[in-house]
């Protein structure tokens, strides 16, 4: 169980990441957090494993209290929490297996990990994890040779190799094309169902959130503005999360992107109409959510349209 009690995070720069968040996430739940860039989604997820230290309130993860936690106990806590990232965060010049074995570091001595000498049992766990995400045959391939979707699966296997009780995912599909994004989300969902691992996922896309989340938490300016099921996340909720109502632009055809949001998306505010053509690095990725959404309901179009503009450009090399 993860329990936030009036948690706030203020960064050294003075930016407020979280502002009085109170939440309880029970064991085994699949929670999706949605919101604009800069709404505090990432801060929320990263506070759970202490990558971002909380500056107020109290945060309890299992039996561990995160306020003023010592380095050693933080490492113990982190060994129980798997995490996957938007940019996959693999060491691309080494093998898939070596990357997955990173998940076994917490039970490996420093000396053994210096020599890359993992125990037979740890290797077995790593192979199991790779099998679970369906890329066992890639075990000895260099990670850089895999596609984006495969790399994210390796990252999931790495997190699984930790045999965690909690799985965190910070924008796991933002660098992937829609079919791959859905495949990765399905993997996460399956793992959640099969192993009962509590899963907390950050997403830009409300339609993906609705499709996969048992529970959706909407965030805006560091505060929780919605907490409920996907079915409850209607247009009014959308407005609360994204700070405005749906406009005609949101459902317009590709090539006429919606206006950017308020928060961190402000940088793309001006000339939003030209975004699709100017953001060349992410152009293909940006274009695809619309193609995908066009085949689904208008609601999905709206959900996919807004975050697309609000999303921060990602490393083009990371896109498949």
């Amino acid at each position: 169980m993860i329990e936030f009690r009036d948690v706030s995070v203020t960064y050294p720069t003075g930016t407020k990441g979280l502002d009085g968040v109170s939440l309880t996430i029970p064991e085994g739940e699949f929670v999706v957090i949605v919101g604009l860039s800069g709404a505090g989604k990432s801060t929320l997820v990263r506070s759970i494993n202490g990558l971002v230290p909380i500056t107020g309130g109290s945060l309890q993860v299992g039996e561990t209290d995160l306020s003023g936690i010592r380095r050693r106990s933080l490492r113990t806590l982190r060994s129980d929490i798997g995490m996957i990232f938007q940019g996959f965060n693999l060491v691309t010049r080494t093998s898939v297996m070596n990357n997955v074995l990173t998940g076994r570091l917490h039970s490996t001595s420093s000396l053994r990990s210096m020599l890359g000498w993992y125990s037979r049992a740890d290797k077995e766990i790593a192979f199991d994890a790779l099998e679970r995400v369906g890329i066992l045959e890639k075990a000895w391939v260099r990670a850089s040779q895999l596609s984006g979707g495969q790399q994210q699966r390796v990252a999931i296997a790495r997190a699984l190799a930790q045999q965690p009780r909690v799985m965190l995912a910070d924008e796991p599909v933002a660098s992937l094309d829609p079919p791959t994004a859905n495949a990765v989300m399905r993997d996460l969902q399956r793992i959640n169902r099969e192993l009962g691992i509590t899963t907390v996922v950050n997403l830009h896309f409300l339609d993906l959130a609705r499709r996969y989340g048992d529970r959706i938490i909407g965030m805006r300016a560091g505060k929780v503005v919605f907490d409920g099921t996907g079915a409850q996340a209607d247009d009014a909720v959308f407005e609360r999360i994204y700070g405005r109502s749906l406009t005609a632009e949101d459902v317009a055809a590709p090539g006429a992107p919606a206006r950017a949001g308020t928060d961190a998306g402000a940088g793309t505010d001006a000339g939003a109409g030209a975004d699709a053509s100017t953001e060349t690095g992410t152009g293909t990725r940006d274009g695809e959510p619309l193609d995908d959404a066009a085949s689904t309901s208008p609601g999905s179009v709206q959900a996919a349209g807004t975050p697309r503009v609000a999303s921060t450009p990602t490393d083009p090399a990371a896109t498949p």
């Binding site: 129980d80 990990s113 997190a159």
Partner: peptide
């Protein structure tokens, strides 16, 4: 810095961070 963050999130210590990431 990505892989370093990943090793930290997996509960690795400083030496492990240096040698694996």
């Amino acid at each position: 810095p990505g892989p370093i963050e990943a090793v930290e999130a997996a509960g690795g210590n400083r030496i492990q961070r240096a040698f694996t990431a």
